[in-house]
Design a protein around this nucleic acid. Structure first.
Lengths: 214, 214
DNA sequence: GTCTATAATTGGATAGAC
DNA sequence: GTCTATCCAATTATAGAC
């Protein structure tokens, strides 16, 4: 699954070199038409190179697909680890900030598309699905759990199981919006819809994990 | 998308006739290998009929796929509309009962597989994804909303927006388990894991929507 | 490394006999 | 309705010249 240079003296990550063109074209085609409906011919034509060049850089179709998924997965990973909050005293505002950033990435069209393709091809590429999930849910879940632990130490929350609380918070924030997006390509959630979900989630979360009780 | 008899005098739903064999074989192959990786040759061979017979009953590959998805979707629809609870005074127990039944269908391997295939082929068959989603989330959401409305009238709950409460409850019960199943074919949730999720969900839900407050 | 041309296979769909 | 045999287009992957 190593996509870039192996032993060749090629400059690393040459963005507009042939490899970059191929990856870019492959990403667009794979994400729009799926794995099975995308031909290597089409990738070569779309990238403006010949099939020989294509096969000179990538062993076969499977490896090319893995490389494309790898780049998109990395982007999702980076986006989610950058989720943060300004240091406020108002725990409610902080939770809303984080929820908003999270939903932005979760409902991002590119993220959704890659999840669709990977999920659909899960039988052929089981490990890609696992990697995508880990770059998504696990990364953001761990981040939230750490936040909750710190805020509990600071007396802002009363969370006993940070991982459980993190999963509950994220589940509430998402509601069924991510799943709906995944199933219905046209029903993109509106901003008010997302905002309402987040506010309801924060209210419910604080009613249970807020500092006043327990 | 009408799969069974149109004008032919064939007995309706002949379970072990050629049509039944074809649908059964097609279901197994489509769900295991996906749409693009399943050939009509394979379907015919697996069903023990010739390709001519196959094409005598189904116009083309797309229509066959639609018919298969239709049968599975119907099963999911029926399963979810049958979710119910014994009439107790203990609201907590009733919620746990419903949550358990819901999770049983949500984590059912066949349901998961059909969702994977449909999601992966969403660009080719947009309406199938919408139908699946409606047979799943919308059906169970409406059912729950109605429960919550009745229980609020009876003084067991204090729910102002039944649809929102229903989505929140279902989101909490699922957590990230459905999404995890969808992405990772091997990580099937254990019963204790599911049970713990449900109990935590009910506790949190009742802390907010329970009758004592408000 | 890159191209043109092509090999080798497989796909969906049909013709015609019974 | 059902079968055998086949057509034709498209696909992945490679050979050989430059």
């Amino acid at each position: 699954m190593n996509l870039m240079q192996t032993t060749q003296p090629n400059r690393i990550s040459d963005p507009q070199g042939k490899v970059g063109q191929i990856l870019s074209a492959a990403r667009e085609l794979f994400l729009n038409a799926g794995y099975g409906n995308t031909s290597m011919d089409a990738v070569a034509k779309h990238a403006g190179v010949s099939k020989s060049t294509l096969y000179a850089h990538f062993e076969n179709k499977e490896q090319l697909f893995g490389a494309v998924v790898g780049t998109v997965r990395q982007r999702l990973h980076d986006a989610l680890t950058s989720v943060s909050t300004t240091d406020e005293r108002d725990i409610s505002k902080m939770l809303c900030q984080i929820g908003t950033q999270f939903m932005q990435h979760v409902t991002d069209p590119t993220s959704l598309t890659i999840f669709r393709v990977v999920i659909g091809e899960l039988n052929t590429f089981p490990e890609l699905g696992r990697e995508m999930y880990q770059s998504g849910q696990i990364v953001i879940g761990g981040l939230m759990a750490e936040f909750f632990r710190q805020w509990t130490d600071a007396g802002l929350l009363a969370v006993d199981d940070p991982w459980l609380a993190a999963r509950q918070f994220l589940a509430l924030v998402k509601g069924d919006l991510q799943f709906r997006c995944l199933c219905d390509i046209e029903q993109h959630p509106t901003q008010p819809e997302i905002k309402r979900n987040i506010e309801a989630a924060v209210a419910m979360f604080l009613a249970y994990y807020g500092p006043k009780k327990s």
